[in-house]
Design a protein around this nucleic acid. Structure first.
Length: 590
RNA sequence: GGGGCUGUAGCUCAGCUUGGUUAGAGUGCCGCACUGUCACUGCGGAGGUCGCGGGUUCGAGCCCCGUCAGCCCCGCCA
């Protein structure tokens, strides 16, 4: 239903099959070319461009005059006949370049001031500074690139709705004004006018609500949920963001993963990518061992190897010392890496040093054998035992896994880049499973939930919950794509006693458990089905599929890295009277 | 909370290394000419708090200190 009482078509939708038709159009002046006796205007709407042709043969003098005076970005209403362009002036690379509109009627409906930033850019013309793009967001949003991003975003949201609806999930909204949760990220707080000194919080996620919906018998829930976290931002992090949030009852972890895979495969299909599935599963430990990180980029095969068994008599003393204190010698053999320059190796060494992994050990494999400083460190005999092929490069670090893993992850990425290793696949999804249930605070030794405190322990590990919590795995899983975490989920604790026990392990006093999570525990005690769920970071998915460099390019009105909205100007001071009504006073002394 | 980069005409940038006459270019904007352009073309013109404040100096866009804003990263983000 493109046609309205003011227009018959969208500009970008016209093609040669419309030739001869009289049309009415509404759109924006993209560019104007005034040849004196002839005027051409490129007119734009969300579908694309069409050329308007003003010629005294079919255009009145009055309309010629108006067309000559219209500024770019003005909104105009046009009437005319679609015509094939003269043979000499046709460009078939774009369907709309075969045709033009012979204008007979022309009104400037919305004149525009000269735009402070350009919408129509020349080839290779740089984008304005992002600050200006955010300040003049309406103009920036007119750019065809951003319009394409937001159209894609819409189609992805609709696809997610459809897929989950087909899978019998119910879309249920949960409150935006909710209860503060002292754990996790900082909450955005909203003061209550009616209740002096009391506050709502904006949800960091609908976690507890969706669990309670399972208890309430809704079986399968989803929501395109807005979430809010008052933390410092990054290119891939906004203070308010959208999750595809879902939860299902009577499910195993594999059941949830199957649903999420369906959603992801369908979303990638919207972007014309066919994804093979089921996705491979990788245990957390295995991911750390082979890739040094829990979100490996599996587009490349390069893996980390444990070289500790090779350490022998002629290995350097510092290697023996690290191994004796529980460290390991781990490295990466890069085919063709021996061609890397000394400067590139110095760069890798700096990377290792920045990751606090100490010195980088390296060696090149030539036709004669291994060469380089690594021969001394690892030992000639040990390296011979490693084997390898001429052209290989070994880089290695020695120390505790907690240090070497992150360092090797960075080294792996850099080696892939430097050696220009081929991608084995362009779209590498995987599941990371068997996460640890707790992380130990390195300073205090306290146990913290690795994810959130509602995650169920792995049934095989429940026996060690009290004796050795650090070794317990969780029924928690992450979806990973090309080295990006797309989302995470888990099977939840449904036994109120277990839930209380976990809260206790986390050091939350009994009275606080009651105050903070009473409504959850009461819910679990009301007859809770086994359930679990997932949350996908939708903005990041849209960013990846749009090929955008920043979340800000897939969000209509985003915030800056200082959480400011430059366009509308938020946050902002408020009237003292409004503060008084909320029982608030602003301190200026700190 | 910490580190880095950037800030000069409406926009994109040069000028900063080595302080010194009137701060330039492209584009956009304004005016004139132009009947097949599509980055129209040609001629002419206007347009500057060099982010802001302080300091050094005979003299600061340039050096120093502070500050604001944007971006990137670390911390943080159960």
């Amino acid at each position: 239903m493109t046609a309205t009482s003011l227009r018959t078509h969208r500009c970008g939708a016209l093609s040669r099959s419309d030739a001869g038709q009289t049309v009415r159009l509404g759109g924006w002046v993209h560019r104007r070319r005034d040849l004196g006796g002839l005027i051409f205007i490129d007119m734009r709407d969300r579908d694309g461009l069409v050329q308007l042709s003003f010629d005294p043969r079919w255009t009145s003098l009055e309309v010629m005059r108006r067309a000559a005076g219209v500024g770019v970005e003005s909104v105009v209403l046009v009437e005319g006949e679609v015509a094939l362009r003269p043979e000499s002036a046709r460009d078939t690379s774009m369907s709309t370049r075969e045709i033009e509109v012979h204008v007979t009627g022309f009104t400037v409906a919305g004149p525009a001031d000269t735009p402070p930033i350009p919408v129509a850019r020349k080839e290779n013309e740089a984008l304005p500074a992002e600050e200006l793009r955010l300040r003049h967001r309406v103009l920036d949003l007119r750019r065809p690139e951003l319009q394409a991003n937001l159209v894609l975003r819409h189609r992805l949201l609709q696809r997610a709705r459809q897929t989950l609806t087909d899978l019998e999930f119910l879309e249920i909204e949960t409150p935006i004004l909710t209860k503060p949760t002292p754990e996790g990220a900082r909450d955005y707080l909203v003061p209550s006018r009616i209740h002096r000194g009391e506050f709502y919080a904006l949800p960091q996620s609908p976690q507890i609500y969706k669990q309670l919906l399972m208890v309430a018998g809704y079986d399968r829930y989803f929501q395109l949920a807005r979430c809010f976290r008052d933390e410092d931002l990054r290119a891939d992090r906004q203070p308010e963001f959208t999750q595809i949030d879902l939860e299902a009852s009577f499910v195993s972890a594999e059941d949830v993963q199957l649903v999420v895979e369906r959603v992801l495969v369908d979303l990638w299909h919207v972007a014309d990518v066919r994804v093979p599935h089921p996705f491979p599963r990788l245990a957390f430990q295995e991911a750390m061992e082979k890739y040094g990180i829990d979100k490996p980029d599996l587009r490349y095969d390069l893996e980390i190897r444990d070289l500790t068994p090779l350490v022998g008599a002629d290995s350097a003393p510092f290697v023996h010392e690290e191994v004796a204190t529980g460290g390991r010698l781990r490295g990466i053999v890069t085919p063709g890496g021996a061609a890397l320059t000394r400067k590139a190796l110095d760069g890798l060494a700096a990377l290792a040093r920045d990751a606090r992994a100490g010195g980088l050990i390296w060696a090149r494999r030539t036709a004669e054998g291994w060469e380089g400083q690594g021969v001394k460190a690892v030992g000639a005999t040990s390296l011979d035992a490693l084997g390898g092929q001429a052209g290989d490069l070994l880089v290695a670090v020695v120390g505790a896994d907690a240090v070497t893993s992150p360092a090797l992850h960075l080294l792996r990425g850099e080696l892939i880049r430097l050696a220009a290793l081929p991608q084995r696949r362009a779209h590498a999804f995987c599941w990371i499973v068997d996460f640890p249930l707790f992380e130990q605070d390195p300073a205090s030794g306290d146990y913290l939930p690795a994810h959130h405190p509602f995650t169920a322990p792995h049934p095989d590990d429940i026996g060690r919950l009290a004796s050795d919590p650090g070794s317990c795995r969780a029924l928690h899983y992450d979806a990973v794509y090309n080295g990006n975490e797309l989302g995470s989920g888990s099977i939840r604790i449904t036994d109120p006693e277990t839930q209380r026990h976990i809260f206790g392990l986390l050091g939350i006093p009994d009275r606080d458990i009651r105050r903070r999570f009473g409504f959850l525990l009461d819910g679990l005690a009301a007859g809770a089905p086994p359930h679990g769920g997932f949350a996908l970071g939708f903005d990041r998915i849209a960013m990846l599929l749009a090929g955008a460099p920043s979340l800000r390019d897939v969000i209509a009105f985003p915030k800056t890295t200082a959480a400011r909205a430059l366009f509308e100007g938020a946050p902002t001071p408020v009237n003292p009277a409004d503060l008084t009504a909320l029982h608030l006073a602003v301190r200026s002394d700190d």
